[in-house]
């Protein structure tokens, strides 16, 4: 047998065996599907969003609100969720220019975690969900689909959740989602104002309705 054939077979077996092994014995297929194929890094796509902020009761995928959201709404107050991923410039920009300085937070951007914020008269829970953190609970990752109201699949996404009376007179979670860097030309001042307005509105609604909120 020629040397080239031995080399061909050896390379093919090594590559196929390694590929098959990775496919069968690691979670890389699921990772690539959930964290690359089913998401869009908006800054990598060279896009920001230009969408009006609208509160709604209807979840994007028709499923109920996740338990961690209900718990916080029942026991603490309104919630600001930031969904972020690895290798996403806009996710980091928003963290470094808005979230960390304005809410006086300092944390590792690669770890999913919650913070109770009480600053500038704002009182809410900030939930940072980093989908590439292997310790992120699946419930938190799945919550993205609940709040992706524009069906964009884009990162970063911010969701502000409070409670309000719906049309049938029942108090329910009430939320709005914002995508990417939602003000053109990196206008961080305007972005900050939008966040503050939304959080203040959420706090007013929560204070007004919490007494009648029954999960």
């Amino acid at each position: 047998m020629e040397r080239i054939i031995i080399a061909q077979i050896a390379v093919f077996l090594i590559v196929t065996g390694s590929f098959g092994g990775m496919f069968l014995y690691t979670d890389v297929y699921e990772d690539v599907q959930a964290k690359i194929v089913e998401t869009i890094c908006l800054s990598c796509a060279k896009l920001d969003t230009n969408l009006p902020v609208q509160f709604t009761f209807e979840t994007a995928n028709g499923k109920g609100h996740p338990d961690f959201v209900i718990d916080i709404l029942k026991n603490k107050g309104p919630i600001l969720i930031q969904y972020g991923e690895k290798a996403c410039a806009a996710c980091e920009d928003m963290l470094d220019n808005i979230i960390k300085p304005e809410f006086e937070l300092d944390f590792d951007k690669t770890i999913t975690r919650d913070f109770d914020i009480d600053i500038h008269g704002l009182n809410f829970t900030y939930v940072y969900i980093y989908i590439d953190d292997p310790a992120t609970p699946q419930e938190k990752i799945d919550s993205y689909d609940v709040y992706d109201i524009e069906y964009i699949r884009g990162f970063p996404m911010f969701t502000i959740i409070t409670i309000e009376y719906d049309h049938s007179g029942i108090i329910k979670p009430y939320y709005a989602s914002l995508y990417g860097k939602f003000e053109p030309n990196n206008n961080y001042k305007k972005m900050k104002e939008t966040f503050f307005e939304l959080i203040e509105t959420s706090m007013e609604l929560w204070d007004r309705n919490i007494a009648g909120y029954d999960v």
């Binding site: 869009i40 908006l42 796509a45 060279k46 230009n50 806009a90």
Partner: peptide, 18 residues
């Protein structure tokens, strides 16, 4: 990616710095 996204979601996106 970018141009089809702009076409599929008209009015939702604006170009960023890059």
């Amino acid at each position: 990616g970018t141009f089809p996204l702009l076409a599929v979601y008209p009015g939702k996106f604006v170009p960023n710095d890059f």
